[in-house]
Amino acid sequence: MVSKRLKSKDPDLVYNQKGYAWNKFKSSWQLQLMLVLPLLYIIIFHYGPMYGIQIAWRNYRARDGIWGSAWVGWKNFQEFFAYYKWKTLVKNTLAISFYQLLAGFPIPIILALFLHVSNHKILVKITQNVSYIPHFISTVIMVGILNQVFNPITGFYGHIMKVLRQHKIISSNNYYDILSSEGAFRHLYVWSGIWQAMGWGTILYIAALAAVSPELHEAATIDGASRWKRVLHVDIPTILPTISIMFILRSGHIMSVGYEKVYLMQNKLNINKSEVISTYVYKYGLAKNKLSYGSAIGLMNSAINSVMIILVNFIANKLSDGEAGLF
């Protein structure tokens, strides 16, 4: 970070003297060598295919290949905005994304803190191990379980409704179908996702908490801090860099609500709230082999994701004097 601060052209400064940069580079040859293989991978496999991005501006036909396909300019992008419901798509996508971020991000952190603080080692161990399992349940199964649990007559939810009906708390022919409710869709989607991911999400934070220096804790205890105070002043600050990085990385996915789970949870009644960009692309893009169209929409998503991640990174850097940023 030296070069950023000292931009003066004073020839007496060693940084501005001839050959300084080259010498520095030479002396770091081992580090540069370490980077060779990973960089090679990235250049070949990430940058290599990038020329393919242009199919968003073409009308891709396999026979013509990428270079030979007709150039159509911004037509693919315009087509998206010609879809009469495009505003709903964007609204739904962003709403779900932000909801997921705001509700789902803090929970693994909080849980990790509780698990770390608790003295009941056996209970903690059992709970931890059990809580990882939902992460492995595939989307298809997850939605199946959701449908079964919330079935208004035969499911867990249905049984509760039955009891409520029997005690006249709700009217006796109230079979409110929560799975087809527009209002409930986002909640069901987000909270089932949180349920699935929260246990697994604690792993990273628990590892970071375990790495907190015991000496810091000792020092704090000697100073008379209770466990709770220690959480606030030792544990949390130490894992702040991890939290920050994870948040920045997460915000780079703001437009990426994956299609599969939404598609499985969609039905005629909740479609106004459950149609997101990815399901739309899946249904109208892939189904008709309109790869260019899908690519254009994907690029727009990426652009928005980029803006988000750069913005959040900028804010994180500003708040922490450049420490907490990703780059």
Partner: peptide, 10 residues
């Protein structure tokens, strides 16, 4: 690379 992916076909 984080921001732009080339897509499945390329």
């Amino acid at each position: 690379t984080m921001l732009f992916g080339a897509g499945m076909i390329p």
